[in-house]
Design a protein around this nucleic acid. Structure first.
Length: 396
DNA sequence: AAGACGGGGAC
DNA sequence: GTCCCAGTCTT
C-alpha cells in the first residue's frame, strides 16, 4: 500500500512509519486529540480518488445520466428500486418522453401513468410517483424540493432515494445505501453479520456517510453503485480489476466470496388459479384491482384461486358470486406459470361464454362503480394490465 | 424484525 | 431451476 505524505493511515498517528517528524509542527496532531481513523483500509482521500477516476473511465452511458434534472433523476430512481438497469432503460425513455415534466405527470390520468409502468412491477411505485407529482405541484409550486427532509417526505421516497436525488441532482453531501453499496461496503469493511439486522444497517449507513467526499458527491455515490454492479458482483467479484481492492478488508482476507452473508432464501408456495376470458359478442369482462390487493389500480381478467386437483370446480358459481353474471365454461386457452413475490402461480386460462345477468355494481378504488366492466377487445390496449393479463389479452 | 409487493436478467 | 435486482411501507 502506498501512503503519500500527509495522509493519515488507518492506524492514524500511532503508525511509526509515517512522515510526521519530517513535517512542520503545525501539520502534526496532538496526542491528546487522536484523529478518527480512516473508514476504509488506507487513506480515505486515496480511496475517493480511485473511485472517481475509475468511474470517469468505466461508467455506462445510461439515459438518466444525460442531465441532472431533479425530475428525471427522481423518475429513474423510482424505476430502479428493486429493478435492474437493463430493464429500466426503455421504460425511462418512454416515460420521460411522454411526461417530460412534473406538471405533465401531475396532470396525467392515472391510467396513463400505469400504462407507462405496465410490466415494470411494484405498481405502487407508479401510483405514489403520481401522488408525489401532484404534491410537488401543490406544496412546492412545481419545483422539486431540495431539502433532504422534504424530499423524503414525498410518497415512495425513502432514505436511499432521497439521498440519491439530493446528491445526484443537487450535489448535496448525502449518503446512499442500496443493494450494490450494501455489498460493496460490507466487503470493504469485512462485515461478517447478516446485513438485514438493524445493527448492520446502522453501521453501513454510518460508513456510507463517513466516506463521502467534499465535491462531486453525486458522481461518487453513483460510482460506488457502478462498482457494485460491474465489478463487486454478488458472485465471482472481479477483484483484480477493482479500483479499490487495496482498500478492501474482505479482499485482504480473501473472503470476498463469503462476505456479505447470503440472504436466507424464501420458501416458495405453489398455488393454482383460474383466469376467465368471458366473452359477450366482441367484448370481454375485466376488473380493476382494488387498492389493497396485488396489481392495485391495474386491470385483470376475472381470476379465482383454485384447488390444484380440480381447478375448474364450481368456477361458474365463483364468477356468478363475484361479478353477478352467469356464463358457460369453454375451451382451455393456455396455462401461464409466473411468480409473484413468494408465490409460484400456475394460471389456467379458459374461455367462458356469457349467458345472462347484469354486472354486480361495486365501488372501485376511487369510489366509483367500475370494478367490473365489459370492454371491447380492440380497446384492451388502452388498459393497464398485469403482465399475465397482457399475455392473455394478446390471445383474445 | 418480518412480510408484501412483480417481473425479468443472468447464470 | 436459482439468485438477485439503484427499496418502501406496513404489520
Amino acid at each position: 500500500m502506498v501512503v503519500s505524505c500527509g495522509e493519515t493511515t488507518r492506524l492514524g498517528i500511532s503508525s511509526s512509519t509515517n512522515a510526521a517528524h519530517f513535517m512542520p509542527r503545525s501539520l502534526t496532531r496532538a496526542k491528546s486529540a487522536p484523529v478518527k481513523s480512516s473508514p476504509v483500509r488506507g487513506s480515505l482521500t486515496s480511496f475517493q480518488a480511485l473511485v472517481s477516476a475509475w468511474f470517469a473511465v468505466h461508467q455506462r452511458d445510461l439515459p438518466w445520466r444525460k442531465s441532472q434534472d431533479a425530475y428525471r433523476v427522481w423518475i429513474s430512481e423510482i424505476m430502479l428500486q428493486q429493478t435492474q438497469v437493463a430493464t429500466v432503460k426503455e421504460y425511462f425513455r418512454r416515460f420521460t418522453s411522454e411526461l417530460p415534466t412534473v406538471h405533465d405527470l401531475a396532470a396525467a390520468e392515472e391510467e396513463k401513468v400505469l400504462r407507462l409502468w405496465e410490466g415494470l412491477g411494484y405498481y405502487r411505485r407508479a401510483r405514489q410517483l403520481h401522488a408525489a407529482a401532484k404534491e410537488i405541484v401543490q406544496r412546492f409550486e412545481g419545483d422539486f424540493p431540495q431539502q433532504l427532509e422534504q424530499i423524503q417526505s414525498l410518497p415512495g421516497i425513502g432514505r436511499y432515494t432521497a439521498g440519491a436525488i439530493a446528491s445526484i441532482a443537487y450535489g448535496q453531501k448525502t449518503p446512499i445505501l442500496e443493494a450494490n453499496t450494501q455489498r460493496v461496503y460490507a466487503r470493504l469493511i469485512g462485515w461478517e453479520e447478516d446485513l438485514t439486522t438493524s445493527a448492520s444497517q446502522k453501521r453501513l449507513w454510518e460508513f456510507a456517510e463517513d466516506i463521502l467526499p467534499d465535491r462531486d458527491v453525486g458522481a461518487f455515490n453513483q460510482a460506488l453503485m457502478e462498482i457494485g454492479s460491474l465489478v463487486c458482483t454478488p458472485k465471482a467479484p472481479d477483484c483484480h480489476n477493482c479500483p479499490v481492492s487495496d482498500h478492501c478488508e474482505a479482499f485482504r482476507q480473501k473472503r470476498q466470496e463469503e462476505i456479505p452473508k447470503p440472504k436466507k432464501k424464501i420458501q416458495f408456495i405453489p398455488i393454482t388459479e383460474v383466469a376467465l376470458v368471458v366473452r359477450r359478442k366482441n367484448e370481454v369482462l375485466v376488473r380493476q384491482c382494488g387498492p389493497d390487493e396485488r396489481w392495485a389500480g391495474l386491470w385483470d381478467f376475472p381470476r379465482f384461486s383454485a384447488d390444484q386437483n380440480k381447478p375448474l370446480d364450481q368456477i361458474e358459481d365463483k364468477l356468478k358470486q363475484a361479478a353477478g353474471i352467469e356464463g358457460s365454461l369453454g375451451d382451455h386457452l393456455t396455462t401461464i406459470k409466473h411468480g409473484v413475490t413468494k408465490y409460484r402461480i400456475t394460471l389456467l386460462c379458459h374461455e367462458m361464454s356469457f349467458l345472462k345477468g347484469r354486472l354486480r355494481p361495486q365501488a372501485g378504488p376511487d369510489g366509483q362503480a367500475r370494478v367490473w366492466q365489459w370492454r371491447e377487445v380492440s380497446h384492451l390496449s388502452d388498459l393497464p394490465l398485469s403482465t399475465t393479463g397482457r399475455k392473455l389479452a394478446k390471445l383474445v
